[in-house]
Design a protein around this nucleic acid. Structure first.
Length: 273
DNA sequence: CTTACATCCTGATTGC
DNA sequence: TGCAATCAGGATGTAA
């Protein structure tokens, strides 16, 4: 499940291997992603250079030459892998390779997404800020815009799900659970009833968790792989996510899993109040 | 404004 | 063992 750390790792790796390259041609094998890709997609990216790669929340944004930007979201099961010219396909499941970009060094970028919850679409670079996907998103959790003051204001009048894309960008179930564990705050707590001190702890817990996850190249819970096909190393450092019934690594109490605001939240009832 | 819920999809897991 | 039912989950549109 690619969240901010996975997309940021992807961006950093592709910054080396793909930025500066020109897309010689693109092929769309399956246009029906979360939104069906337009029929002219391949023609519109052909010949364009990948000038810059940015990230906003869980979205990867490729700025292409000629004033076009490509917005990519990996959904739940998407991956964007970079394969060298000599990269064989032996042993790989190619069934869900939906979009392929051939670069000018004969390497390829391949978008694979079994569940097709992902998204790839082109927008004029000037329209990026008003793009529906990015417009309502909260501040970047690794920016100064994500402060205790901000979070306290955002939590006002809100009952559930303090870690929501409209409140803070790019954090999904895995990292929301891990951040709240580190902060010692139960996910079942009403956001509007959190004390100022607790909100401060949530903000303070956020960057260390995300930075450690980025350093580990993300979390492979089930199937996630980075752009070089490697699993993320942060899975070994998960304290609560996916550990229902297992002993808390701090107090040995049983980890629980509850659904809060339609999202699975793992927590330790002893360590989180 | 808020939250709730169904929808999209397929692989993995659970149940019988 | 085999097949069917269930689950997982981000974003979105609609409803309450």
């Amino acid at each position: 499940m690619p969240e901010l750390p996975e997309v940021e790792s992807l961006r950093r790796i592709l910054a080396h291997s793909a930025v500066g390259r020109t897309i010689v041609r693109a092929r769309v094998a399956e246009p029906r992603l979360r939104r069906t890709m337009t029929h002219d997609f391949a023609a519109r990216v052909a010949g364009r250079r990948i000038a810059r790669l940015r990230r906003r929340g869980k979205y990867l944004i490729a700025e292409l030459s000629g004033g076009t930007a490509m917005i990519v979201h990996l959904g739940m099961s998407g991956s964007l892998t970079h394969r060298g010219a000599d990269f064989g396909s032996a042993g790989l499941d190619r069934r869900h390779d939906h979009v392929e970009f051939e670069l000018d060094d004969r390497s390829r970028l391949i978008y694979n997404d079994p569940r097709r919850f992902g998204l790839i679409r082109l927008v004029p670079a000037g329209d990026l800020e008003s793009a529906a996907e990015l417009k309502a998103m909260g501040p970047e959790p690794l920016s100064s815009g994500f402060s205790a003051d901000y979070l306290a204001r955002a939590a006002r009048g809100r009952r559930v799900a303090i870690m929501d894309q409209r409140i803070v960008a790019g954090i999904g179930n895995i990292y929301a659970s891990e951040i709240l564990f580190r902060a010692g705050v139960r996910p079942t707590r009403r956001a509007s009833r959190l004390t100022r001190r607790e909100i401060g702890r949530v903000v303070e817990a956020t960057a260390p968790i995300l930075r450690a996850a980025i350093n580990g190249r993300g979390t492979t819970f089930r199937s996630y792989r980075d752009s070089r096909g490697r699993p993320g190393r942060f899975a070994a450092r998960l304290m609560v996510y996916g550990r229902e019934g297992e002993p808390c690594l701090v107090c040995r109490g049983a980890i629980r899993n509850v659904v809060v605001g339609q999202r699975a939240s793992f927590f330790c009832p002893r360590c989180q109040r």
